[in-house]
Design a binder for these strands. Sequence first.
DNA 1: CGTATTTGACCAGCGC
DNA 2: GCGCTGGTCAAATACG
Length: 294
Amino acid sequence: MSEDLREFYYHQPYHDDHRSAATFPYSGSHSSADSSLHAHLQMFDPSYMSFTEFLHGSNDQSSLSAAYGNSKEEEKPAVEGETPATPNSSISSSSTEAAAAEEDSSKGKKEKETAATDDGDQDTSKKDGKGKKKGEQKKEKQQRFAFMTKSEVDHLEDGYRWRKYGQKAVKNSPYPRSYYRCTTQKCPVKKRVERSFQDPSIVITTYEGQHNHHVPATLRGNMAGIFGSSMLTPPLSLEGPPFPQELLLQMPQLYSYDGGSASNLYHHQQQLQQFHDYGLLQDIIPPLFPKREP
DNA sequence: CGTATTTGACCAGCGC
DNA sequence: GCGCTGGTCAAATACG
């Protein structure tokens, strides 16, 4: 199944907002699972429909398909001519795997098992009772959003509370990838954070799953302070994206493509970057949607 | 002392 | 089957 991972590119005029700016498309999918990569660009405008609608809705990737990201990947060797993201624009991308939606069937189960408590589970294992009952479940697809942010801090405050549970070195990158889990009980959302090796100032954040709770009240204030002082949105919907809508609403346009994997990241980065460098983005991404009126 | 992070080991999927 | 890689676990450690 051609990996129904969808990714969204976000492009917006640069806010001289040091907190979060430029970004590139990123496929948050892990590993080699997806060998085929289609690259259909899609636009998403939160003012036209909810993110959720976009995700679960139209599956047609007809609109706005751009010609890039075709080939299969092979991890991109180091960058060749990398130029830092143009400071005048920002792109954020997110990816998601529709499908997973609400029921966190098997995966949730597994996490529940481990998280809930050791529950005996006849572990047996010496040190790692990782208790991964093999074959019990394969990787459950979860909604994924990935976006890149220009930031000096790795872990961006997004309104939720996260607990780091792992860190791994990233291939072909000097920067490690950190793994976080939402600390709210029963919340299955996870996120990965890593730095672009092309532009160390860019942080790639990948959210996986959907929060089953609201943004912690105490943190929402911080959110506003970080992503902008204007809180333009109603409270976060339970069905919304895995990050506060406050953030989303500041994304006038989101572009997505279908397919992709982590190893495609660099590929896409390069591609997008080129679009950027040559100002092509503006060309291939016509203003289908009217600008947000203030 | 409770909670969060660090970190090495383990596990599963994939390619060869 | 083996090695590589990404993702996760959990003991140890750090931190408030």
